[in-house]
């Protein structure tokens, strides 16, 4: 009981602090935005990718172009590796970041998020036919709540599958955390800078499984080079991943966040986001 009370209290204090921070920020930086710089990884298809010739394309660049047209903002996309993206945002190199960034409590401590524009599922992939047979080709979706006690049956099922295996993941994602908290003690984990690198190692047989986004796997597994790889087990969705993918802002630019929230709401309401997700993911993944 007492812990709950303390939690509630700290929450109030947090809100109060955020309120004060917002007030201070809006007083000091009530700036009129005409142009913004947006960071993207440009290497996470189909969300964002580098096309031959060096231009950036994908779901997010197209969505951003639509949002910027709504707000009459001049938007510049810049490529930045994921591992330096949040520090660069904080240093002020960019005004916002868009890279399939899932809202997590840890990240909310350091950056501010817009409303989510997509919600996706994570899944395991394997290349070894024996492992694929054992785990079964991915079909149905399992909803995990993020509450350890409720999720235990399915996690235990995964643990028996993953025991003694090597799992590859991209570093610093919501999935990294999921894999580390649940399987660190029974499997060895390798972290990669880019998602395509663990797919490469999966084919090479250096790792037994990799864990990433369903949308990412669907796009790369179409390629002839990856025909040996397939998604296995159940697709994992639900509240465990939080509200979904959103734009990231510095905490001192609430007016910019508000502007983008408004544009996103409009794009979600008139079906633009749905149309774009269907174009790029062949499925409606709006939140």
């Amino acid at each position: 009981m007492t812990t709950i009370k303390i939690k509630a209290l700290t929450k109030q204090v947090k809100f109060a602090l955020i309120g004060v921070a917002l007030l201070c920020a809006s007083v000091s930086e009530a700036k009129e935005w005409t142009a913004v710089t947006i960071a993207t990884e440009a290497a996470y298809p189909p969300w964002n990718m580098t096309l031959p010739g060096g231009t950036i394309g994908g779901f997010e660049p197209e969505l951003m172009a639509d949002l910027c047209a709504r707000m009459k903002l001049k938007c510049t996309l810049q490529a930045q590796d994921w591992d330096g993206m949040i520090p660069s945002l904080q240093a002020g190199k960019f005004d916002l970041i868009m890279d399939a960034i899932v809202i997590t409590p840890e990240r909310e401590k350091v950056i501010a998020f817009s409303r989510p524009y997509a919600a996706t599922q994570g899944v395991l992939a394997a290349s070894d036919p024996e492992l694929i047979a054992r785990a079964g080709v991915a079909g149905e979706v399992v909803k995990l709540t993020g509450d350890a006690a409720l999720d235990k049956p399915y996690i235990d099922q995964m643990r028996t599958l993953l025991k003694g295996k090597t799992i590859g993941i991209s570093s610093g994602t919501a999935y990294t955390q999921f894999v580390e908290t649940n399987f660190k003690d029974i499997a060895s984990i390798r972290e990669y800078k880019k998602s395509d690198e663990h797919v490469l190692d999966l084919q090479a047989g250096r790792i037994d499984f990799s864990f990433d986004d369903v949308t990412f796997f669907s796009s790369v597994l179409d390629m002839p080079e990856n025909k040996s790889v397939s998604m296995v087990g159940s697709k994992i969705g639900g509240p465990i991943w939080g509200p979904g993918e959103a734009l990231g802002f510095r905490q001192d630019t609430p007016e910019l966040k508000a502007k983008f929230d408004e544009a996103l709401s409009a794009a979600l309401a008139d079906g633009t986001v749905k149309r774009l997700t269907e174009k790029w993911f062949k499925a409606d993944i709006t939140p």
């Binding site: 591992d83 949040i86 520090p87 840890e106 350091v110 590859g168 570093s171 390798r190 972290e191 990669y192």
Partner: peptide, 18 residues
């Protein structure tokens, strides 16, 4: 290339704490 050396661990800590 995913070796957990001093720099690798440093990057891991940064991913957690920024």
């Amino acid at each position: 290339i995913t070796v957990w050396d001093v720099t690798g661990i440093a990057q891991q800590i940064i991913q957690r704490t920024y």
